[in-house]
Design a protein around this nucleic acid. Structure first.
Lengths: 343, 343
DNA sequence: CGAGGAAATGTTAGCGCAATCAATTTGTAT
DNA sequence: ATACAAATTGATTGCGCTAACATTTCCTCG
């Protein structure tokens, strides 16, 4: 037995088994081990088994850092969302990962808060990992962010919004349309004096703007607006709901999330207001608890799972085909007004 | 000007600017650029500025894949949780990332579901990225998982549980103790006939076991148990609550999460049962909506943020000091019974 | 002004793996 | 058997960066 192939470990080595070690134990060339592990169909049955045995014997764990450098494929997808503390985004994360993991992709998570500045910073460090794909929440990015994404030429899906000029692919819905639809719906039901409780993020504001535009188009209705801080929570909803109810005579309160609506509902119940008789309440998101609250919350259903699913699928497709066309592909998953018992 | 330093790009190159390109433009050695970017204090003011200018000019984005390979530091932390669709884990993710990001660490997220098998698979691929640290939910792992973690010698924090022999560091609380404390508390308030609704994961089962043990120790009380599927949701709570109430005469229903408890509350309200007069309800987790439901939900507060915070801090400390001692460090963050209006 | 040390910069040699192409073995048809 | 293609394996090289050491520049002080 000669071990001329075993270079003595340099001081920089990590000490654990390398591909070379497996190769020596299996009695084959390192390249063959690489193939046996990554493209087993190119290797004969017998060598594959010998390699597998050698892997077990040496306790070898592949080093994908080195693999990524050598092959220019990181098998990493970056997923950037404002937060995971909101069930809708949690659902997206859950679904995207559910689709990508079985395909051998790992997810680098980035939380951008709700500010373009954070998005910019996070994107920079994310790009330094050379991800094979990126899922990015929202369509409004800083100039630098857009530039970086352009020149990086990474398959990209923007989600959770609509835009006329997406950077690459886009899966989302129109926040403006949501606002208008809610206004139309509530006006049709006879409500006229509205309270609006909105989170201070840009997409919630777009829904508010859509709502207001809807009122204006109809030439009816008046509104009072309150913004809440991040993150939205039931206490916020209860607080701002109380504030609105104290100062104004209202028919309905429209909230930028279900959790805020639940807070308003609790406030209404504690005041002995009948819902929707004396006060109608509308949420957003159709979180799991919306259907089961009492009375059941009327809301706008956004299919976060569908967004995550389609986004991940589009990304997989684009990553699979080496010819990376910038031809934008846009998908509007829409939304649905769910008319339960609070309106 | 000679450009002997510019090796023509091989066919394997990615095409974007490299450290070498920046070095050439700045008129310094590549190593100096590396230092200017990673350890600016080692470089003179003037060179730093020249390098910065060259970076902007070339549009250079560092390649941390190569950096990680060369330095054996990935600046990556793996975070493994069962799900992000549960607010408690979402909170942990949120906090851990909030602590690590400013320190220059990125997070590789892994969703293990609630099964040791998935954990095993995910951990394998995670280790292949050579993370600098790992945060892992739970203390019960498969033998293979334990072995791999042992031999990987990666700083590790187990969270969300207690154990007598943690693999490395541990930040959590005792599920058994939670169950016992809840039993004691409700018995003291005079409740005797209990319904239990539990998720089908091992830690929820431990809380149930603790509760039952608490009843046995006191020699009082009887219980009916129902398990729900994953993920827990308000409809599940309402369903199983209805099932329990239909079949049995109960004083109180104890749930393994707030969301289930909210479902039970909705069911009780729809039946016109007074809460807690005719039925007491107890949740778990003290989610944001627990405090603001009406009546306000009694629950067990788990400080997910504290767990995430301390876990991340411990990890940072361990990653900073090169001498990696296996001396276990365990932290019990405890819990608190929050006695609101449903008990 | 030159010695001596600190600060700044440069040179060399990998990190562990896979793309690429070359060499070998195997199978198939004549 | 022989020619030829297909399947399988191997040798070489470099991905882009940083550790480690070598060298140069700068500064201080007798």
């Amino acid at each position: 037995m000669d071990d001329s192939s075993t270079r003595p470990r340099s001081s920089r080595s990590t000490g654990s088994a390398r591909l070379t070690d497996v190769a020596r134990v299996a009695g084959v060339a390192p390249m063959t081990v690489s193939r046996a592990l990554n493209r087993p169909e190119l290797v004969s049955e017998t060598t594959r088994l010998r390699v597998q045995r050698a892997v077990l014997e040496t306790g070898y764990v592949p080093n994908r850092v080195a693999g990524a450098l050598a092959s220019s494929r990181s098998r990493l997808v970056a997923l950037l969302v404002p937060t995971v503390a909101h069930s809708l985004f949690a659902e997206v994360v859950q679904t995207v990962m559910g689709v990508l993991a079985p395909q051998g992709y790992q997810v680098l998570l980035g939380l951008t808060g709700y500010t373009p500045e954070q998005e910019e910073t996070i994107l920079e460090t994310v790009l330094s990992r050379r991800p094979d794909g990126i899922v990015l929440t929202g369509c409004r990015h800083s100039t630098l962010t857009r530039q970086r994404l352009q020149s990086a030429s990474v398959p990209l899906v923007e989600i959770w919004d609509m835009s006329d000029d997406p950077l690459d692919m886009l899966v989302g819905f129109s926040h403006d349309a949501v606002g208008r639809a809610v206004a139309e719906h509530l006006l049709a039901r006879g409500y006229r004096r509205f309270g609006l409780i909105s989170a201070d993020d840009s997409r919630a504001r777009f829904r508010v703007a859509g709502f207001v535009a809807g009122l204006e188009d109809a030439g009816e209705g008046e509104y009072q607006l309150r913004e809440v801080g991040t993150p939205s929570s039931m206490p916020w909803g209860r607080d701002k709901g109380a504030e609105l109810l104290d100062g104004h005579s209202l028919d309905a309160i429209v909230c930028s999330s279900d959790i805020l609506a639940l807070g308003v509902l609790a406030e209404a119940q504690s005041r002995g207001l009948s819902v929707p008789g004396q006060l109608a309440i509308m949420g957003f998101g159709d979180s799991s608890y919306a259907a089961a609250s009492f009375p059941a919350l009327s809301t706008v259903r956004i299919d976060g799972a569908a967004i995550g699913l389609r986004a991940a699928e589009h990304l997989l497709q684009r990553m699979a085909q080496p010819t990376f066309e910038r031809a934008a592909r846009t998908l509007d998953v829409g939304f649905e007004i769910v008319d339960r018992d609070t309106t």
